[in-house]
Structure formats: structure tokens, C-alpha cells
Amino acid sequence: MNKIKSKLEQLENVICRRQDDLFRFAYMRLGNRADAEDAVQDVFLRLFRSDVDLTRVDDVERYLFRAVANRCCDRLRSRRSVSLSVDTLAAQPVPDDDREIHAEYERVAGLLSSLPDEQAEVLRMRCYDALPFALIAEITDSSEATVKSRYRYAVGHLKQLLTTKNAKQ
């Protein structure tokens, strides 16, 4: 029982340290609080059930971001399977407390919308989630060189887009 108590305390420490980062990570992909927090909760519970040593920060971080990324993919896939369109999602009311973060989600989604999914995801993870390239490579099951290459293309593409946009203004 002491082991379980100790593991619960360790879990609580990890949650305190990482819940906001993971929530942001999930929200920026799913676009609403309920789904994002469901994904985060599910991942923390899976972490608790797993054999990952909760005192090993590197292992835990790697696990958490990979697992949340997976959950988000699952959720997005299940949305597609029930034919829930982006327009339908956008039409869902946003609670007052979440207006700011939802606007941020839409701003970034808009910026990245013209990029291929792989490039957009690398850019989001690197710039928005501040993840190192090595971890992004693990999460996306790509080599670090591929990730950096996608990053360069994505930033170059985005720079071109912003330049054109500014010129029009």
C-alpha cells in the first residue's frame, strides 16, 4: 500500500508540473477543453498504470507527450469517422473562460492551415510546445534529420506566406 501511496504522490507531482503544458498541447490540436482534458486525464492514468519510473523525468516527459499526441490523433480520427466537419466544430459554443485560448487556437490553426500536416505538426511542436527536435522525432516516428528538414520547409513556407500577406496589407 505504501508503494501505491508513494506512486500517487509522484503522479501528483508530475501532474502539477506538466498538466498545463499537456493541456495546451492537446487543446492546440483538438480545439476544445473537454476533449483536451479527457486526453490529458487518460494519459496520466495510463502513466500511473504503466511501469514508467515516475521519478525519471526524461522518461516521463517522453511518455507524456507521445501519449497525448497519440490520444489527439485517435480523437481526431474518431471525429472524422462520425463525419464531424471543422465547420461543425467551429460552430460549437466556446465558454467565456476559454475565449482567449480558443482564439489563439484558431489563430495558429489559420497560420498552419496551408502547410502539409507533417510540417504543420513539427512547427506546432517546436514553436508552440517548445519541444526539442529529438523528442519531436520520437513522437512523429521520424528521424531527427527529417524533422529538421520539415521544420526548415515549414518555416520557409510560412515566411513566404506572411511576406505576401504583409505586402497585400
Binding site: D20, L22, F23, E100, I101, R107, Y128, L158
Partner: peptide
């Protein structure tokens, strides 16, 4: 342009 501009809190 892609850096976060607000805080996210669970």
C-alpha cells in the same frame, strides 16, 4: 508568429 500569446491552464 507561432510563439504562444496567452497562457493555457487546465
Amino acid at each position: 508568429e507561432l510563439n504562444p500569446r496567452c497562457e493555457f491552464h487546465a
